[in-house]
């Protein structure tokens, strides 16, 4: 297990939990790093764009990779501008592209995301695009230079868990980049399920932020993700495997 690394754009990580952006507090960051083992922390550039937020960078523990996101962008151009701004602010080369032109469901715009990925990858960013799980888009993202693909599990705020399960599975099966599930993971069991399926990492925020005991929930996510990962690596047993094999072969009656 120790050499089972998550590799994104040539960078290696041991943890498969990524702290998403959203409800922010130093307490949350601390818990995510200490108890969930997060090595990557998302930071909304628009959230950092406050006098208070300017200090957020100071609070990020050493050795943790910052992942600025482009939330607030409504199209490719705006996302590119925000990504460049993040770089200027000293956030490093990672960027999570989020482009929404829908204020109700906050669903990502796949077409614009592909365009922005292409531009930013060319500029040397490690691009992590948030997308609606669509195989064709995922392939386009690979060709555009994405470092991973981040499909949503269910609409933000819906608490629906892995609503897009089947489509995420297709991405896992067909795309050679790490598939990182974002948005919608509300509880550790869902994170575990996604990891069993072969997801490379889980991004979550609200599930931790709104927990009664944040550090304990962070620990729960860590265990769940590790359990799911182990199960995936171990190869799931006959009951859960897709196209499951019965213990007595169905074709056992055949002679020669």
């Amino acid at each position: 297990m120790n050499d089972d690394k998550l590799v994104i754009g040539g960078h290696e990580f041991s943890s498969r939990f990524i702290l998403g952006s959203g409800k922010y507090s130093m307490k949350l960051i601390e818990a995510a790093v200490k108890y969930a083992g997060a090595e990557i922390i998302t930071l909304a550039v628009r959230r950092a764009n406050t006098k208070e937020g300017e200090n957020i960078l100071d609070f990020i523990p050493k050795g943790v990779t910052l992942l600025p996101n482009t939330s607030g962008a409504r199209n490719c151009e705006e996302a590119v501008r925000i990504a460049r701004l993040a770089r200027e602010l000293g956030c490093g080369d990672f960027v999570k592209i989020e482009i929404m032109r829908d204020s109700k469901y906050l669903l990502p715009d796949n077409q614009e995301t592909v365009k922005a990925t292409e531009i930013l990858a060319r500029e040397g960013f490690v691009v992590m695009p948030y997308m609606y799980p669509d195989l064709n888009t995922a392939r386009d993202l690979v060709n555009a230079g994405a470092a991973c693909v981040m499909p949503l599990a269910s609409p933000i705020g819906s608490n629906k868990g892995l609503a897009t399960r089947e489509f995420i599975q297709i991405l896992i099966d067909e795309i050679d980049l790490p598939i990182i599930v974002d948005a919608g993971i509300g509880r550790p069991s869902q994170a575990c399920e996604a990891m069993e399926m072969g997801t490379a990492a889980i991004m979550a925020n609200t599930a931790l932020a709104t927990a009664g005991d944040i550090p304990m929930m962070a620990g729960a996510f860590k265990s769940a993700i590790e359990a799911g990962r182990k199960a995936y690596l171990a190869g799931l047993g006959r009951v859960l495997t897709r196209g499951a094999a019965a213990s007595d072969p169905l074709t056992g009656f055949l002679r020669d």
């Binding site: 409800k23 922010y24 507090s25 628009r46 764009n49 406050t50 208070e52 501008r81 925000i82």
Partner: peptide, 11 residues
């Protein structure tokens, strides 16, 4: 509650 002074970017 967590008071937020701004989470907006003029783009």
């Amino acid at each position: 509650l967590q008071p937020v002074l701004n989470d907006y970017l003029y783009v």
